[in-house]
């Protein structure tokens, strides 16, 4: 018998399937402290390895370079930093146009070796500059739930008057 190949792929019969599971994730020991600090105080909890001179944001319980235990090496930093790099998103995941386009930045947080991705708020795409200082815009204290949603985005730092982030 000769082997027949299907030349029209629409002729191939298919069986549909799903992988029917969902997930409950925990933030971890370090992650839980980060979110509780964000919710209560509106600042970022970080851990520092003095020997490697690395300040971890998001915080880690251990130094990934030397494995030092950092569970007692906590500090808090203001939720502000600088635009390290950014992109202007014109289409959503499904290819639909975004109007207006969204500005998404990776913000290096001052006093740390890390940073966070967030939307840039209150400015036009043409006004974004690499290294521009920004502050996190947080949800009002009573609306914070201790998750990434507590950070609405980042906005250009105002020079005068200096408005403190709640």
């Amino acid at each position: 018998m000769t082997r027949k190949s299907i030349t029209n792929v629409s002729q191939a019969r298919v069986w549909r399937g799903t992988m029917p599971v969902q997930y409950l994730y925990t933030a971890g020991v370090a992650g839980e402290r980060f979110f509780q600090t964000l919710r209560r105080k509106g600042v970022f909890a970080v851990t520092t390895c003095a020997e490697c001179q690395v300040t971890y944001l998001p915080p880690r319980l251990y130094c990934e370079r030397c494995f030092a235990d950092l569970s007692g090496a906590w500090a808090e930093v203001a939720p502000s930093g600088r635009v390290h790099t950014y992109t202007v998103v014109h289409e959503d995941q499904d290819g639909r146009p975004l109007d207006p386009p969204q500005v998404v930045a990776f913000v290096r947080i001052d006093g740390t070796s890390g940073g966070l991705i967030g939307r840039l708020l209150h400015l036009r795409p043409q006004d974004v500059q690499v290294e521009m200082p920004v502050d996190a815009v947080l949800a009002p204290p009573r609306r914070r739930r201790g998750g990434m949603d507590d950070i609405t985005g980042f906005a250009p730092r105002r020079v005068l008057p200096r408005r403190r982030t709640p």
């Binding site: 925990t26 933030a27 971890g28 020991v29 370090a30 992650g31 839980e32 319980l61 251990y62 494995f67």
Partner: peptide, 12 residues
């Protein structure tokens, strides 16, 4: 049964 710790933390 259910650790608060992440898999990374358990591994550490």
């Amino acid at each position: 049964r259910r650790a608060l710790d992440t898999g990374k933390e358990l591994a550490y």
